Computed example of a mutant assay.
Amino acid sequence: MTPEEGMAAKIPTAGETDDATRDGLRFIPGISKWSPFHGAAWAVTESLSRLCAMGANP
């Protein structure tokens, strides 16, 4: 019942691979409505924080 923090997926290829991607999306409409610049900066900050919480290398 906990909301997901992000997503991890293995890259689809024809052969074997150990490569994967991680995704930590975030968007805050209230801040973006007030200031698109601050909304974008805060979205990047929160996305990187979520990726670190998932165990990504900062």
Score class of each variant (00 low, 15 high):
Met1Gln: 14
Met1Ile: 04
Thr2Phe: 00
Pro3Ile: 15
Pro3Asp: 15
Glu4Lys: 06
Glu5Cys: 03
Gly6Ala: 04
Gly6Val: 02
Gly6Leu: 04
Gly6Phe: 05
Met7Ile: 09
Met7Glu: 07
Met7Tyr: 14
Ala8Ser: 14
Ile11Leu: 14
Ile11His: 10
Pro12His: 09
Pro12Gly: 07
Thr13Cys: 08
Ala14Ser: 08
Ala14Met: 12
Glu16Asn: 07
Thr17Gly: 00
Thr17Arg: 00
Asp18Val: 05
Asp19Arg: 09
Ala20Thr: 01
Ala20Glu: 15
Arg22Ala: 08
Arg22His: 03
Arg22Leu: 13
Asp23Phe: 13
Asp23Lys: 02
Asp23His: 09
Gly24Trp: 10
Gly24Leu: 07
Leu25Asp: 09
Arg26Asp: 11
Arg26Ala: 11
Ile28Thr: 02
Ile28Ala: 02
Ile28Leu: 08
Ile28Gly: 01
Ile28Gln: 06
Pro29Lys: 11
Gly30His: 01
Ser32Ala: 15
Ser32Gly: 08
Lys33Phe: 11
Lys33Trp: 11
Lys33Thr: 13
Lys33Ser: 14
Trp34Asn: 01
Trp34Pro: 00
Ser35Arg: 05
Pro36Arg: 12
Phe37His: 12
Phe37Asn: 08
His38Lys: 10
His38Tyr: 05
Gly39Arg: 12
Ala40Arg: 05
Ala40Leu: 12
Ala41Met: 15
Ala41Ile: 11
Trp42Tyr: 13
Ala43Glu: 04
Ala43Arg: 01
Val44Cys: 04
Val44Thr: 07
Thr45Ile: 07
Ser47Gly: 15
Leu48Cys: 07
Ser49Cys: 06
Ser49Gln: 08
Arg50Pro: 01
Arg50Gly: 11
Arg50Asp: 10
Leu51Ser: 05
Leu51Arg: 04
Cys52Ala: 13
Ala53Ser: 12
Ala53Asp: 15
Met54Cys: 07
Met54Tyr: 04
Gly55Ile: 00
Ala56Ser: 08
Ala56Tyr: 10
Ala56Arg: 04
Pro58Val: 10
Pro58Lys: 03
Pro58Gln: 12
